[in-house]
Design a protein around this nucleic acid. Structure first.
Lengths: 250, 250
DNA sequence: GCCTTCGGGAATGTATACATTCACTGTATA
DNA sequence: TATACAGTGAATGTATACATTCCCGAAGGC
């Protein structure tokens, strides 16, 4: 998939490894051996090592006790906690934005995104929903909203949590197949979007924070039902292959 | 400083670099050049590179746009946000612990730590406070309290935030010189410690969360006053050398 | 005089040889 | 039979040579 890029080998190795991890080619707990990977990827040990280091920063790998790396494994509990954590961080960003006041210009731009989100399912017919468009705009909305607090530190940690594919704000959108339940989810989510912006405008910090948390819990509920229902289909939701069944493997 | 350990060179380079960063030898924004560092540390490029990568994971370095690393620089705003973030995360851990119920055994152990904390300043005379003992026990308390929520994901992010020296729960203790104000801080902090544990025991999640946040704000206030008052003394608080004065340098 | 291009140097990127460490296994001895 | 020691292999750790890229300055042409 666009593998023969002219970019450097570290990036290629990083990309290839990330793909394998997310799509389940390297299950959680798998120990990654430099030499084996090098031969497999046809890339020398140095860039492979560098790639693993970056993926550890990203949170997909963890450093093994005796040196080396292994694929991080996530239980369902870990995943729900990560989503809860995203809600907490987005809530904090929203609260801070409300407390210190957001720039009108930025708020207007966010309002425009909300209008475009409305358009993605304005017809009211389930089959006509533009899921891809909604997903993209939804990601934009969450990014812009978080930026309102003007805090690089908060932003950074939020980006870190969102980098786990199942914890990103748009994960639940792609996971939703075309049914009435997912339609209702989108309607509720959009109402919460507008409520969050309104709360920030009115300097209602506690309300903004509470809504952001509850908003994330839509994703949590959606993931839990997806995990139970469509357990067999590996591509039901991005990154679902990362989730292990049992308690906590090596 | 215990430099000639028999451990591997990566760890030695990591330690040495971290020390230099924390103590101001490498100010925020400094670009780190592999060759120069290698020659300076008398260690080849490979372990130096590895060390920088780990310090980037730790949050003390950041990857520069065109490759390489530079020392991360923190404004006062960044620091207060990091402390606020710690309060938010500790508050979340406390709330989750309260909601799901904590193990009595773990709570008893935390109670024992609290008793020992009391002993550090039981005499009521300012000069007799055992600051080092308090600092150590305080760190233990915060770690154990966070563990009550049984969430590796939350723990991991909390450890990440606490790894910034000025954001650790004990930073403000060492920063406090022997004056009446710091004595009052410790008294208030200890009252909050007991209140947090009580709230968790009683399943009062919202209260536990609120107290944890307010608790962190003691550290924030203490840092702000330290930064203004003792600006000249570099060792007024661990990691204070990391904080830059102006807006946001390269 | 200004713009463009070519060259050189310094930085990171890459490959690979060699070092070290640690665990596993097999054998020998008590 | 059990334990201890030594050998062997595979893994990461380390050093270093070489490649590549990019910036910057100087020189030459327009």
């Amino acid at each position: 998939m666009a593998e023969s890029k002219s970019v450097n080998l570290t990036k290629r190795a990083t990309y290839e490894l990330r793909q394998r991890i997310i799509h389940g080619g390297l299950p959680g707990g798998t120990r990654l051996y430099e030499v084996a990977l090098s031969e497999d990827l046809q890339i020398s040990r140095t860039p492979v090592r560098e790639a693993m280091s970056r993926l550890a920063e990203e949170g997909l790998l963890e450093r093994a006790p005796g040196g080396g790396f292994q694929v991080r494994s996530f239980t369902l509990r870990d995943v729900t906690d990560a989503i809860e954590l995203r809600g907490v961080l987005e809530g904090t960003a929203a609260r801070l934005a409300a407390e210190q006041g957001a720039e009108p210009r930025a708020l207007a731009e966010i309002g425009a995104i909300l209008d475009r989100l409305d358009a993605c399912f304005a017809t009211g017919t389930v089959g006509a929903i533009d899921f891809d468009g909604y997903s993209e705009l939804n990601a934009q909305f969450h990014t812009r909203l978080a930026e309102l607090c003007q805090s690089p530190v908060i932003l950074r940690e939020l980006e870190r949590v969102k980098s786990l594919p199942f914890a990103s704000p748009s994960a639940f959108v792609l996971g939703s197949n075309e049914n009435a339940r997912s339609f209702h989810s989108l309607v509720v989510a959009q109402v919460q979007h507008r409520a969050m912006v309104q709360a920030i405008e009115r300097r209602e910090g506690a309300r903004a924070e509470a809504i952001a948390r509850e908003h994330a819990r839509i994703a949590r509920a959606n993931l839990e039902s997806t995990f139970v229902t469509d357990a067999q289909t590996p591509e039901a939701m991005p990154g679902i292959a990362l989730i292990v069944r049992e308690g906590r493997p090596g």
